[in-house]
Nucleic acid binder design. Structure first.
Length: 108
DNA sequence: CGTATGACTAGCT
DNA sequence: CAGCTAGCCATAC
């Protein structure tokens, strides 16, 4: 079962934040790390996404790098699937990147 | 407990 | 703009 991952407080927070990302919006690894309480744990966010217990509750495709580019994706066909999903939600991809100025998630 | 690793970021060349 | 380095943190072994 999913213990090693979700059990850990850090991952738990990351997952919680990640699944809070609204549809049609995207968040950066750093942003999630910050919301999770560790602005320097941007890498941990990536690790957490890679270890994602359920891609259903964790829209990892809505998580992109700080400049809007996407580095990896363990589900589907990888980056390609990630892009397709984002576009499917209304997020336009520009040169394999996302316009954070427009789509970056803002928890208001 | 120490070492290795990773879907990162920011800075410099 | 592309490539490389250093810093940083949590997990896995």
């Amino acid at each position: 079962m999913l213990k090693t991952f979700m059990e850990k407080t850090t991952f738990k927070k990351i997952y919680a934040v990640a699944k809070h990302i609204p549809e049609g919006n995207v968040a950066t690894y750093k942003q999630i790390a910050t919301l999770a309480g560790n602005p320097k744990a941007s890498r941990i966010v990536g690790i957490a996404m890679k270890h994602n217990p359920n891609t259903t509750i964790i829209p990892c495709h809505r998580v992109v790098a700080s400049d809007g580019s996407m580095c990896g994706y363990s589900a589907g066909d990888g980056i390609q699937t990630k892009i397709e999903k984002l576009e499917s939600e209304g997020v336009k991809i520009r040169n394999s990147k996302v316009d954070l100025s427009i789509y970056q998630w803002k928890d208001k």
